[in-house]
Design a protein around this nucleic acid. Structure first.
Lengths: 155, 155
DNA sequence: GTCTTTGCAAATGATTTGCAATATA
DNA sequence: TATATTGCAAATCATTTGCAAAGAC
């Protein structure tokens, strides 16, 4: 799953872009942390371990490129940072920005979007708005935090 | 609908905060532009007409205050500005961040959220995540733009 | 060798903050 | 008068950009 080096290299070459170690390494950092929703700074820290000479600006530029190539996605949790996560290459692109954000532990997870499709259809038929993409964030408390809370209440 | 001066003044006094002309004027600007999703800068421009001595920092501070009092809501369209809109005092607070964003004309409108409730229930039962709030943005093309497009195709 | 990309440092731009002056209660 | 608020200018901080050096092809 996710994306392999060869596919990335092929895409770059097709677009007349160059395959650089920096680009490979940034994509690798994102591919190895699929559920982590990394900020540019966090990617920079990961990548610096094996590539100490890399610059933060390069991380920003690479992440920009990866977004344009639709290999990664952007998430904005409104905490002052833009976050990035590797796209799930299996599905059609551009249609899975839906996250559960825990207000207690800050965890971010995805959820199935069967319901979203009917939501979109309902919106289309009632408003005439043609939906092409969505960004859905549900805030609340994750199962883990709820469990812990109950446990504490018991003690 | 929306909020009237008296209610606002009462809330301020209850919290030991002072009623200032700046605060009244910022709220008024938002109340008079209910569907506009104004940025701080835009509010500043509106408010400056009758209050030329007001500072942009005051607008930021007031908007922050209004958010804390849950009189307005924040929308982030990821265009580099945070936007604010007056809350719809009728409904329970904190449960109506759902917008349709037109990719062509940039218009932002709200939609009914009956479906959202079933989406949230479905998420709760399948993941154990307890949803308390949501932010839903559906991107696509508004009815107006679709109509214009068809018209152009005809010519 | 040519054209792209990188690293660095400086610039940008929205938002925040320190502080003395001012307004509210 | 006492405390909260304002206006201004300076600071902040994530992100972007200019440019010369380095790298890819």
């Amino acid at each position: 799953m996710a994306i392999d080096r060869e596919r990335f290299q092929k895409i770059l070459k097709e677009k007349g872009l160059k395959v650089t170690s920096q680009r490979m390494v940034v994509l690798k950092a994102l591919a190895r942390n699929p559920e982590k929703h990394l900020t540019a700074e966090e990617i920079y820290e990961i990548v610096k371990v094996d590539n100490p000479e890399i610059g933060l600006a390069t991380v920003y530029r690479t992440v920009q490129l990866l977004l344009e190539l639709e290999l990664i996605e952007r998430i904005n949790l409104d905490d002052g940072y833009v976050r990035y996560e590797i796209g799930d290459m299996e599905e059609e692109p551009h249609h899975r920005h839906h996250h559960l954000i825990c207000l207690k532990c800050g965890s971010v997870s995805a959820f199935q979007d069967d319901m979203l499709e009917s939501l979109e259809n309902s919106v289309m038929s009632s408003t005439g708005f043609q939906v092409t993409d969505h960004e859905v964030k549900l805030y609340g408390y994750c199962a883990d935090c709820l469990r812990k809370e109950k446990q504490e209440a018991r003690n």
